[in-house]
């Protein structure tokens, strides 16, 4: 569902992503770990076609993102580290707007159902987003993914800055999305959440995917050791 074939990106001579090979299937949460500047965000931007690859191919649902940018975006939902919505609009109105951009028309009731599924409390749904916490905004992002039945979720450090309860809620939502069949790529610094939520874990260092692990095969402390070892390289 999410595929990188020898994907590379170079900025002014420095390599941000180096010959990345990645294959993420349906119903899979792939957690991409790495220090700042390891190439995680660039990888996600390459899948979003926000930046063009220097070489290699990025594919979503079998389609090259550079030649089919709108078709591939139709299949995915992107949640950045700090999901910003239109502050003067309510959660319902924001959801309706972003769904409208994908050609999905939601009435108020339908929008409320999706927001409920994402765990956004009832009394907040018709309030302006300017009063929302980060966790509440992330939930609107998940509601968007549910409403659009997205096959792919690209998440860039979505839990950073969330309190443990909100982070746990978010992880549960991701698991729910996985069970619905979504392929999820999540860049994160949170080793604990990666181990708990992820199906597979990839470690990036200096643009390279240096390690790939199955979450079920390792313990939290093993993951930490492996990660720190790679960071010393």
């Amino acid at each position: 569902m999410i595929q990188a074939l020898k994907l590379s990106k170079t900025y002014n001579g420095s390599t941000a992503v180096n010959a990345l090979d990645l294959h993420i299937n349906k119903s899979e949460i792939y957690c991409l770990l790495g220090a700042n500047g390891a190439g995680k965000t660039t990888t996600i931007n390459l899948f979003l076609n926000l930046t063009a690859p220097s070489s290699g191919i990025a594919k979503i649902a079998g389609l090259d993102v550079t030649t089919n940018p709108l078709e591939t975006k139709q299949k995915l939902t992107y949640i950045p580290e700090n999901l910003m919505l239109y502050p003067k609009l309510t959660g319902v109105e924001n959801l309706q707007f972003f769904c409208g951009l994908s050609g999905i028309k939601l009435n108020d009731k339908e929008a409320e159902i999706y927001l409920k599924e994402s765990g956004l409390q009832e009394d907040a749904r018709h309030k302006r987003v300017e009063n929302y916490s980060k966790g509440m905004r992330q939930k609107v992002g998940i509601a968007l993914a549910i409403a659009r039945s997205s096959e792919v979720l690209l998440l860039d450090e979505p839990t950073s800055g969330l309190d443990p309860a909100a982070s746990n809620d978010f992880a549960n939502l991701l698991t729910d999305m996985k069970e619905r069949g979504a392929a999820i790529l999540m860049a994160t610094h949170d080793l604990f959440r990666a181990k708990e939520t992820g199906t597979r874990i990839g470690i990036m260092n200096k643009g390279r995917l240096v390690e790939e692990l199955k979450a079920e095969d390792i313990t939290h402390s093993d993951l930490e050791k492996i990660y720190l070892n790679h960071m010393k390289e």
């Binding site: 979003l48 926000l50 709108l70 078709e71 975006k73 139709q74 995915l76 939902t77 992107y78 950045p80 700090n82 999901l83 910003m84 919505l85 239109y86 502050p87 972003f98 951009l101 994908s102 050609g103 992002g141 690209l154």
Partner: peptide
């Protein structure tokens, strides 16, 4: 400036059209 551009860019519609 409000941070909504990233989300807009990820939508299946060209920014110029928006």
């Amino acid at each position: 400036e409000n941070g909504t551009y990233a989300l807009l860019q990820s939508q299946p519609i060209a920014i110029k059209k928006i």
